[in-house]
Nucleic acid binder design. Sequence first.
DNA 1: ATCAATTGCGCAATCGTTTGTGCAATTAGA
DNA 2: TCTAATTGCACAAACGATTGCGCAATTGAT
Lengths: 346, 346
Amino acid sequence: MKEKKVTLKSLSHSLGISVSTISRVLNGLGEEYRISKETISLITTTANKLNYSPNNIAKGLRLKRSSTIGLIVPDITNTWFAHLALGIENQARKHNYNIFLCNSNDDIKVEKKSITLLKNWMVDGIIIAPIGIEAEHLIKASKTGTPLVLIDRFFEGVDLPYIVSNDFEGALEANQYLINNGHKRIACFQGLVDTSTNNQRLSGYKKALKTNKIPFDTELVTGSDFGFNSGYICAKKLLKNLAKTKVTAIFSMGNQITLGILKAFKEEGIKIPEDISLVTFDEQIYSDLLLTPLSTVSHMNENLGDLALKMLLDQIDMNDTKKPKNVILKSELIIRESVKNLMHKK
Amino acid sequence: MKEKKVTLKSLSHSLGISVSTISRVLNGLGEEYRISKETISLITTTANKLNYSPNNIAKGLRLKRSSTIGLIVPDITNTWFAHLALGIENQARKHNYNIFLCNSNDDIKVEKKSITLLKNWMVDGIIIAPIGIEAEHLIKASKTGTPLVLIDRFFEGVDLPYIVSNDFEGALEANQYLINNGHKRIACFQGLVDTSTNNQRLSGYKKALKTNKIPFDTELVTGSDFGFNSGYICAKKLLKNLAKTKVTAIFSMGNQITLGILKAFKEEGIKIPEDISLVTFDEQIYSDLLLTPLSTVSHMNENLGDLALKMLLDQIDMNDTKKPKNVILKSELIIRESVKNLMHKK
DNA sequence: ATCAATTGCGCAATCGTTTGTGCAATTAGA
DNA sequence: TCTAATTGCACAAACGATTGCGCAATTGAT
């Protein structure tokens, strides 16, 4: 019932030609090794007929590389990362690479495990959106010969190539926009604390306040991670203390957080922007179609995947020749209807 | 600079103990092979100290399996598949399996390539949401020893284990609901033609019409695939012919299609449900938060990934002992505000 | 006719594991 | 003291591919 897998050896047997010759021919080295035309065509045709295709595992063991790259993201259900993954995968296919996918769930333990796992699979390189609070394992991986590209988050003072969004500018612009519309009490709904993404966006928020001489109130910064629940819970809490805090606008650092906010608001009958204004990071395909079309900071880039993969392949090919240039993607503020202008009220 | 990888051989060298003994000890076979306590503890401690971890590729070659399972989905950016992938991956990690991810882009050629690729990686099994129009390669893969689980789509008359949603019932219920609200001219926005998903949902639509003695009008069925653009284009077309077709409601077969519709409607100033009613497949986390909260058919299942993986692992472990039981997941109609009741008008 | 160069391909090692078998040294039994 | 059983581990083949090297047979030069 089970057909035997066709291998070089089985081909060798049925053709009466040595394994090495067959291997060379199928790798296009026939000419170079002066294999005769007839032998070459004999080998290629029967290989095709028998549907031979090489065992990647054996190949990997011998060559000490696997034509595979590892991708570690916190959460593939986050559309931002899903788009990233799709882009990388499509691009990888063109270069005959394949993708090993790992979700880290924003858990540093899982991330570490994934790294060693991928190394044991001899991946040729790793693209990772790191948790962001620890870099030792990444530095080590890079030093021991696994090219690395960080994406979305980076480490200050750590020399690993990265592609990130301009989170600082994005946050600055978003908050300046709120301030321009007369908002002074702006709640900041943050994501995972101490990640570069969060730090940068927080800095942008603070910078906007500072340049406009608005005092920074640490109580207005809440949130624990980039998830739906974090947004939902903080929004409920916000509403309770509204009288005290006098918040008129929210700056949300992520799309899942924002959905949590919207859910809470819907339950409590709060209207955007009539009751509270909102600007959020992460443009989504549906941002425009929500009850209130949202003003968003867009930092989605169509060819982000291409870029990341190219950066990695360069490292793989160039063998440490020169350092890759880090990339900081521009972000763009898309203005819709979720911010109320308080200036008219003077 | 580059530290050498620690292998069994290098351990053997530094300990003066043979490779085979070390291998056995590290695989927990020390007792069985009567290796002395001292040797065992010596080996385990130094292995830990030197941070040994086995090379998966070499292991795979020797064992002819890889502790890896392949996952093929049409499009990882579709949240339904992303959730599936996340579930499978988390569950797989618990069983010490890893995931090889492939996007097929709903392209049968890519799907076929992915299958051979995964087989060449000696994956222990494959979970696939197939394009759905051809099964030969899948049957062959299954016959040649790669356990397979189909998900989301199946093939009539083909004996491959599957997990699917009850698309027929879901569509039937959705359309019955429209009809109960007085709609008789219902446009059907379909997905990829000839896939089981599409066929089943279409059958449900037709069945609802038939039992209510509403004639089936082939002109009311449009759409080419499950993407945003398909919905957008068809919606625009629909609006042009509205006077002629007298459509009062739309049954949409997918969330991306629906977003396309909403976009088109927004551009044309069409209101839901005042101007046109809408029921759609695929509950989303934001379905409730759109301009008009959508009535949806929910067939997302939290533990779908667990289920699929379990089904696959059973096959892997049991070695053809018995056939797995196919699973048909229930769907649920969630009623919100996107359907207008025409009955009051009498 | 002799020797060197070329042609055409095969041998065998190697990658890092696992595993069936074998073998020396120790202990036990008589 | 001699044989048999047990203890404790090592040898070597295998998985399927790649690759440096070598060697016989043919061809060409003198």
